[in-house]
């Protein structure tokens, strides 16, 4: 059977979901036989998200313009998108800033009030992506196919989601062990 074209991406998160993926430990060695990693911040040096991706695990919420662009690109080029972890599913911790109104509060505090040498806002065009006013969960900007909650989802939950996909089947995520926040 042809290897499935597999990707992972991170948006606004803590990389804990990716670390939990790496907690698959020796199962990664089996996985290497069955997948071709075509894009991944931790597992691949290719810089452009390619066409015809079969499965992509997307960690993190949508917090800035680059997150948004990458999410759109991933949707256009991917068959099955997994909303990977609580930040992607609910916007979780990054969305705690939403209650402060728009993004200016958090920026002002860190860079203007508190940068003691050269206080200024990081805003170089084309380099530093502007923050969005509100942080959003992934499914609010693109349709997703599978939700994998957890902060992070433990490795065996990730495995339960991936294994059926390797066989071309849709995973059935049901019950407390597989559908649990936090």
């Amino acid at each position: 059977m042809a290897k499935i074209r597999f990707a992972t991406a991170w948006l606004a998160g803590c990389s804990g979901c990716h670390m939990s993926f790496l907690d698959l430990d020796e199962f990664l060695i089996d996985l290497a036989q069955q997948i071709e990693v075509v894009f991944s911040p931790v597992g691949c040096d290719l810089k452009d998200y390619p066409e015809n991706v079969d499965v992509c695990l997307v960690e993190g919420a949508i917090a800035n313009e680059e997150n948004l662009e990458l999410a759109y690109l991933i949707r256009r080029r991917t068959k099955t998108i997994i909303s990977f972890g609580d930040c992607a599913v609910t916007a979780n911790i990054p969305a705690m800033r939403n209650m402060l109104g728009d993004e200016s509060e958090v920026l002002k505090r860190a860079y203007l009030e508190l940068g003691d040498a050269t206080p200024q806002l990081p805003d170089e065009p084309g380099i530093v992506p502007p923050l969005l006013e509100q942080v959003l969960p992934l499914h609010q900007v693109i349709p997703v196919d599978i939700y994998l909650p957890g902060c992070p989802p433990p490795a065996d939950r990730i495995r339960a989601a991936i294994e059926p996909l390797l066989r071309g089947e849709t995973p059935k995520l049901e019950g407390r062990e597989l559908l649990k926040f936090g």
Binding site: A63, I127, L131
Partner: peptide, 12 residues
Amino acid sequence: FHVVEYRGFEKF
């Protein structure tokens, strides 16, 4: 070297 993410923990 540019770091291009920011979440703002200290404030929230």
